[in-house]
Design a protein around this nucleic acid. Structure first.
Lengths: 133, 133
DNA sequence: TTATAAACTTGTAATCATTACAATATTTTA
DNA sequence: TAAAATATTGTAATGATTACAAGTTTATAA
């Protein structure tokens, strides 16, 4: 499906800027932060402002087409919503790997009357490459 | 066990300041941030510096007696290590609730040769109180 | 088409958590 | 006691994010 219709379906007017930020998230599999998205697009949109990137990502997460990736980082990184997955972050090289999210959509005990809309899972440790240099 | 011996066991010299920061984490069940810890202790230790709180929490997480609670917040919150548990954060009132961590210490597919030392789980949604005001 | 409103984008300045770092104080060791 | 090591402190810098007002574009209605 086209980026435009995905935005429209979620109640977001598909301006060129927004579509390009959406595509940037879609094409990247590295959970980019605001700085990276900005630097990637400012060549094509020379007037782009970082504030617009912030605004757009806020809009996307509010409308649930993107999400903040939960990492022990000091800055936010973003993911498209659709495919929820876990992450592994290496404590040595800080690289982030995608991982499968174990199915079990188990509601934790005592939370039956809560409305759970998302579950984030982050594994931390040492990645293969840093274990065997 | 006394705070002093827990610190000692983890290779941390148990200064008064460190013990009090440890006790602050132990007594609180609200995942305090640096500001809250500082404000809680500065009455008893008038010379306390916020930098000391930062230093001490870094030391604690490095020595694995505390951990950074993973929330989609802009500031770090801290927990004692011992009892790993999941968290639920309400998107409306931002309250954080402790939740059971489902047992299954399942290593995600493809990560057999990684060293996994921690798993953080965060549920988000709307809490009971905000659902039924 | 033109005027007006709404929505979108931009740039600058402020905020706030965290870090860097040098100075001071305390404790340990010789 | 003197010297070294460790802890603590305060100030200044950094860097991500937000506030906000101004400018631009797009939609709506006369």
């Amino acid at each position: 499906m086209s980026s435009a219709s995905i935005l429209t379906q979620h109640g977001i007017k598909p301006s060129l800027t927004r579509m390009m930020i959406y595509d940037c998230l879609k094409e990247s599999n590295s959970h980019p932060n605001v700085e990276e998205i900005y630097r990637h697009l400012v060549n094509q949109i020379p007037t782009l402002s970082k504030t617009t990137v912030y605004n757009t990502l806020h809009l996307f997460t509010e409308k649930q087409i993107a999400r903040v990736v939960m990492l022990k980082d000091q800055e936010n990184r973003y993911d498209l919503a659709g495919h929820p997955h876990a992450h592994f972050q290496c404590l040595v090289c800080h690289q982030v790997y995608d991982a499968e999210l174990p199915e079990e959509s188990h509601v934790p005990r005592g939370f039956q009357s809560f409305k759970i809309v998302d579950r984030s899972v982050l594994f931390t440790g040492t990645c293969e490459r840093c274990l065997n240099p």
